[in-house]
Design a protein around this nucleic acid. Structure first.
Lengths: 231, 231
DNA sequence: TGACAGAATATGTCTATACATAATAGCGTA
DNA sequence: TACGCTATTATGTATAGACATATTCTGTCA
């Protein structure tokens, strides 16, 4: 019979605590919103918000009529922010530098076309660039921009600022897909200043505006790179 | 003057659309909750929920008194679920197999101690295991469990099921930190059936219960592994 | 000019109430 | 017994109104 002066945070944290301290075991049914609102002396809407947040975090599972139960496997999800390379580098207190390597308009290569679900001959802008932190190679960027979706990219100037910053300001996206994997350094090994075949961390991102693909980018980091996220 | 029959989803999506279609430009101030509730014919609370979700997604930024504006750099965040290896493998339609490689109770090595913020001589359970998908090495798991935090782990039997599944059911966590990077295969190369020094994808995870560290685990995948997430 | 106290304001949260909706449980019928 | 309809129930969402709180703005005083 906690007295607590309502507040959805109080309720959320208390319930979270009960789960963490195993007062309510995984799989167990917890009291309904009505009951909790009585216990905490809060309105049902307040309890609802607390429970909703916990459900979103994956700690509990809710179903109409069936009630709310502690998640069996806390399939919690972590979040990682999608920063601009520049911000990422500057946040570490390092000096950011950018170097454009190449930029051209091409017909979509078969592989890229398949990945983006494009018809043959779709024109793309292909940009290669290097991002440095304190004068050391930090990320090699290999990007394709779909000109049908973003016509303005045809004439954009990427000599001083990277296409990412330009896109972020110019072409908002609605969906995105991220892929991460490890690979051996290929042609980009020299640029990153690593041996050929040395392990590199590859992040790949595709973004869409509605159904239309905007861009595909491969971001390649030397093996010193760490992608960190907290929960 | 959209008529729309309220619903926070309708409002959320419409605002999202206006941002995507650049009706409201990045950095621009958008109408206040009061105004929007009039426009959409909804209660302020409903508009609030719509805006709150958009803010959480990083599409807009809200500040009291200052108002709500379209985020300059959509610092959106992606989420990735934290699945059990088994589920991950079975979800691909592959057969899951587990093999315990070694298990012993040790004093914390200096490196691990530092990483977990432990005092000297803290006893740990060190478990090494291999997870296979369709009989092929999928993940090498190298785990340390802090016995002070989870005493029951001392006697737990990991011959048939991995420590991860055991922990998930037994020791809930409140915080976690994830790190991902690429590395060259070391001692585990044979187990993963790759050449020594071949690129591997390393995921590291530390979990805490309150202030007390629970476990540190390194999960090493061959370079065929892809970590995928959508937004 | 600049510092500071207060007024103004947009968002943040809570309440009470109502109705909507999904899903279960139970009943009746074939 | 098997099937399908209906009542029940817990969560989901909406509303109007109120108060809380963080910030900005403004005017005053040194």
């Amino acid at each position: 019979m906690t007295t607590a002066r309502s507040s959805y945070r109080t309720i959320r944290d208390e319930i979270s605590r009960r789960i963490a301290s195993r007062v309510w075991l995984p799989g167990a049914l917890i009291p309904g919103e009505e009951a909790l609102s009585v216990e905490f002396g809060a309105a049902r809407a307040t309890v609802n918000r607390a429970l909703r947040e916990l459900a979103e975090a994956g700690l509990i599972e809710r179903r109409r009529k069936a009630g709310t139960r502690v998640a069996l496997h806390p399939v919690r999800e972590a979040r990682f922010v999608i920063p601009l390379v520049r911000q990422e580098i500057e946040a570490r207190g390092a000096a950011y530098q950018y170097r454009l390597l190449s930029s051209e308009t091409i017909k979509a290569p078969a592989l890229i076309r398949a990945r983006l679900g494009l018809l043959a001959d779709a024109p793309l802008r292909h940009v290669r660039a290097l991002h440095l932190a304190d004068r050391r190679p930090y990320q090699f960027e290999d990007r394709y921009i779909v000109l049908e979706t973003v016509p303005a990219a045809e004439d954009a100037d990427f000599t001083d600022t990277g296409p990412n910053e330009w896109l972020v300001e110019t072409a908002p996206f609605t969906h995105a897909e991220f892929t991460f994997h490890a690979d051996g350094a290929g042609a980009e090994s020299e640029l990153l200043n690593v041996e050929k075949g040395a392990p590199v961390f590859v992040g790949e991102r595709i973004t869409w505006l509605g159904e239309k693909p905007i861009t595909l980018v491969r971001m390649i980091h030397p093996s010193t790179y760490r992608m960190v996220t907290k929960l």
